[in-house]
Simulated assay, not measured.
Amino acid sequence: MKRELAKLIAGQVCLHACMTGMRMAAPLMALRSGQSEAAVGVLLALFALTQVFLALPAGRYADTHGLKRPVMWSVLTSFVGAGMAALWPIFPVLCVSALLTGGATGAAVIALQRHVGRAAQDLTQLKQAFSWLAIGPAISNFIGPFTAGLLIDHAGFQWAYGAMALLPLLAWCWVRKTRELPSYVKPEGHEKNSAWDLLNAPMFRRLMLVNWFLSACWDVHTFVVPIMGHERGLSASAIGSILGAFAIAAALIRIGLPFLVAHLKEWQVLTGAMLISSVFLALYPLMNTALSMGCCSVLLGFSLGSVQPMVMSTLHQITPESRHGEAIGLRLMGINASSVVMPIVFGAAGAVIGIGGVFWSVSALVGLGSRSAYLLRIGKKNG
């Protein structure tokens, strides 16, 4: 299990790094070629947009075909997307590349998460496996942009896109020898169930609500902190350092999670994360220096970085095994839809109640919503 998990994490890192590298390089090239900020915003949104619409079909495909076939198609799609940008680095092609690499990464993540959840032998192993798997995106968020940035500075954009196109091929080298798990046949009479039927289960609805609350915390930090830093008169490097500290903290807590989860229940981690996040979101607008904002950012990163493995572990326990792919797809669809919509909501709300008001509103929402995370305990106990 450990060796296979390491290979899957390496494959996830390579595929995700292709997308994150493209997500850094393509907007930068668009700005340097004279595109407007609005056009660049659309380009960035396209990386998430495909995942909103493909998440459920990708989940069903993974339920039917397992791990390797979905990952193979994702590898080919990412390779084509990044390769097109390397051959024809113009804005319309960059938009197509964003759609292809974003959608392929989302589809591969669903197949990988489904496989890892099914391969776990017990609850402790389930939580530990998802904790290790969650480290992958943190690593790729560094590798992709860093590699692309170096190549842009020393060789040019087309070489950077070419390197990103090679990463999915490396991912396939890691994943292709993974042993497929036996397929799970849906019970008779359930072959044509809609994924939306999952929302009829109170536990699943509660988990999706908790997932959305925590996703909103992540979004408000990513979107509003640069605006707040600008209002405070901080430099671009200081604002970047604050956001970087958040990412590092989120990665560090995920490294420590596999050793902690054996002693903690999922509902305990989720409830604690929501309460802690509520406190630090409320304190954020009161911070006036880069150092104090950085401290808040680190503590918030520790809190929010711990939740994804717990959400995934709970999801695999409360949904039928034959529909794990659909459930993961529905979760991913909600996260990406939130990432598209919430910045618009935050921007409009900030114009009316101010940036501090946005933080305090989300803080109150998440604090009150922590009851949903606590009730996951009651549901699992009764179930």
Rank of each mutant, 00 (worst) to 15 (best):
K68N: 10
F346E: 06
A10G: 11
A104V: 01
W172F: 12
I253T: 02
G356C: 09
L375D: 14
T314H: 01
G294K: 09
H221I: 01
K265V: 12
G83I: 07
G240A: 13
L94T: 02
G11R: 01
L330H: 10
L87P: 08
S78G: 11
G106F: 01
A38Q: 06
V42N: 03
M228A: 13
N288A: 15
L234C: 06
S322T: 09
W218Y: 15
S183M: 07
L209N: 14
R3G: 07
V71P: 00
S215V: 15
G329A: 06
P145F: 03
P320Q: 05
L275T: 07
A48N: 11
H324E: 00
L252Q: 05
M208A: 12
S140L: 03
V340K: 06
D63S: 05
I276N: 13
Y374D: 14
M19D: 12
F223W: 08
F47E: 09
Y161C: 13
L330P: 10
R69P: 04
I152H: 09
E266H: 04
R179G: 01
M164V: 06
M1W: 02
A327S: 11
S292R: 10
A171S: 13
K381Y: 14
N141G: 15
V298A: 14
T64D: 11
G144A: 05
L67Q: 03
V80P: 06
H16V: 07
V210K: 00
R179M: 00
P27S: 09
L49Y: 00
G106E: 00
M287D: 09
S235A: 13
G350T: 05
G66E: 00
F79C: 12
V109W: 05
L87T: 11
A238S: 15
R118M: 00
K381W: 14
I253Y: 01
T271P: 09
F246V: 04
L270P: 12
L275D: 06
L43G: 05
I139M: 01
A163P: 09
K380A: 15
L94K: 11
F47R: 04
L181C: 01
F213G: 13
A351R: 12
A58Q: 07
A349S: 10
E191S: 14
F359A: 09
I239H: 12
V175Q: 02
G81H: 03
M310V: 12
C173S: 08
Q12Y: 11
L56K: 03
R176C: 07
A120C: 11
A120P: 12
G233C: 04
A337E: 09
M22W: 01
